[in-house]
């Protein structure tokens, strides 16, 4: 996983609540068996009309928003299906961070596994960032994970909370599986009793 230390990029706003993972990456694109190449299908039904022409009303269809790497959106972002294709598509499109008042659990978790930083800010701050980035196409933010700050170009900054362990994993780009396998002896030991496990002998 690519480490996340700090990031500066263009902000794209989507002023909607409950953006679900079906909207982020519609199911017809889940059939690929690779992790890459999902960016072209990101928000497909919003970015493209039924005849596959570009829908100019959708923010990511237009420059400079098509170069954005920070997404700002409404509450309960990423609800619905557990598909990790959602963070894969966001990352492949170029997004490294999502800012919203709240996130759905599985999506939130999936982001960290892929080097995408989900940032929770109060609803009023998010509303302001949506307004500013709508009025000022090309507006940039800097995200400093070490300092846990989102900084505007005019210097105004917002503090955000992040779990210490997840922060460390992101800063160092650590592989979860490798970390767990360091505790193989504890797993062996647990398996000697494992009170609720039942081996499937087909």
């Amino acid at each position: 996983m690519e480490p996340f230390i700090s990031h500066k990029g263009i902000v794209a706003p989507i002023d909607r609540a409950n953006i679900d993972t079906d909207a982020i990456i519609p199911k017809q694109f889940l059939k690929r068996i690779e992790r890459s190449g999902f960016g072209q299908f990101l928000f497909y039904d919003w970015r493209f009309n039924a005849d596959q022409s570009v829908n100019p009303d959708f923010v990511l269809a237009n420059a400079p928003y098509d170069q954005a790497s920070i997404l700002v959106a409404g509450p309960n972002f990423g609800c619905g299906s557990s598909r990790e294709h959602a963070p894969w598509a966001l990352l492949d499109f170029g997004f490294r961070a999502i800012i919203a008042p709240s996130f759905a659990d599985i999506f939130f978790n999936n982001c960290f596994k892929n080097g995408v930083l989900p940032i929770t800010l109060p609803e009023s701050d998010v509303a302001l960032l949506i307004e500013l980035s709508t009025k000022n196409p090309g507006m940039m933010l800097t995200i400093d994970l070490k300092e846990q700050k989102v900084v505007r170009e005019d210097g105004v900054s917002y503090h955000f909370d992040v779990d210490e362990y997840r922060k460390m994993c992101l800063l160092e780009g650590l592989d979860d599986i490798g970390l767990t396998l360091q505790h193989a002896d504890a797993i062996d030991k647990y398996e000697q009793s494992a009170p609720f496990s039942v081996s499937i002998t087909a």
């Binding site: 557990s82 990790e84 599985i106 596994k113 970390l179 193989a184 797993i187």
Partner: peptide, 17 residues
């Protein structure tokens, strides 16, 4: 429910963080 990275994690370790 879990994501694909966690599917891989469970396959490899039978555990989750």
């Amino acid at each position: 429910g879990i994501g694909t990275s966690e599917v891989e994690h469970v396959l490899a370790t039978q555990c989750l963080q």
